Simulated scan of single mutants.
Amino acid sequence: MVNLEAYGDKEEALAHLAQSRQALLARLRGAEASWLSTPLRPGAWTPLLVAEHVALVEDSTARVLRRLRRLAAGESLPPVPFVPGEFRDGKPQAPEPVRPKGSLSLEEVLVLLEKARSFLLEEARLLDPHNPATFPHPFFGPLTALGWLRAAAYHEAHHLKALG
């Protein structure tokens, strides 16, 4: 099981995110076009699809951070149905909203990564790491805003390792 607390406090989690993003961008920008569009292994996503997925997850995470901040401020928000994560052959499968659609160029994926990261960093800047409110993560269960930030740091690092 993943120990999200290993990603530290808010500042440490942000430092992990900065490191992994720098490495991801270097990997993508320095890659051959053929590698970017070739599945990492049979039945797997291509590196471009992985990068698109990372951006979609970060955008989703930023929206969760915003929701938790709004709840802490006393806003009454409609409930969001919880959909538990699915596993196939012991591996977590990306929930439908964060599955890459494909057909994006490297340049388009880089723009998507930048937009998602900017949104995530803005919401992270505003998050109160002591806010006890939680929102369920499909694989980690109920997480606070800090837990979601740590999960984002873990997520990008996890996919970066898969890219080699």
Rank of each mutant, 00 (worst) to 15 (best):
G30W: 09
P78W: 03
S34G: 06
S103E: 15
A51P: 08
F82R: 07
S20K: 06
L112H: 01
L143D: 07
A26V: 08
P42C: 03
F140L: 09
A153L: 05
G43P: 11
E5K: 13
R21A: 00
L120D: 00
Q19V: 08
L48T: 03
P97M: 10
D89S: 13
R67C: 04
R99I: 02
A44N: 12
K101S: 14
R66P: 00
A157P: 00
P132M: 08
H130A: 11
S105R: 10
S37T: 15
R27K: 15
V83F: 12
R67F: 04
N131D: 15
H137I: 02
E75Q: 14
A51T: 06
L65T: 05
L106Y: 05
S60Q: 09
S37G: 12
R69N: 09
E96M: 11
E108V: 03
P138R: 12
W45A: 07
E122P: 00
L110G: 05
A44W: 04
P84H: 08
V83R: 14
P95A: 13
E52D: 07
S76Q: 13
P47V: 07
L106T: 01
R150M: 03
A44D: 14
V64L: 11
L146W: 10
L127P: 06
Q93P: 01
L49V: 00
H155T: 09
A157G: 11
S60N: 12
F119R: 11
L77G: 03
F135Q: 11
R99N: 02
F140P: 01
L4R: 06
E11N: 14
A62W: 00
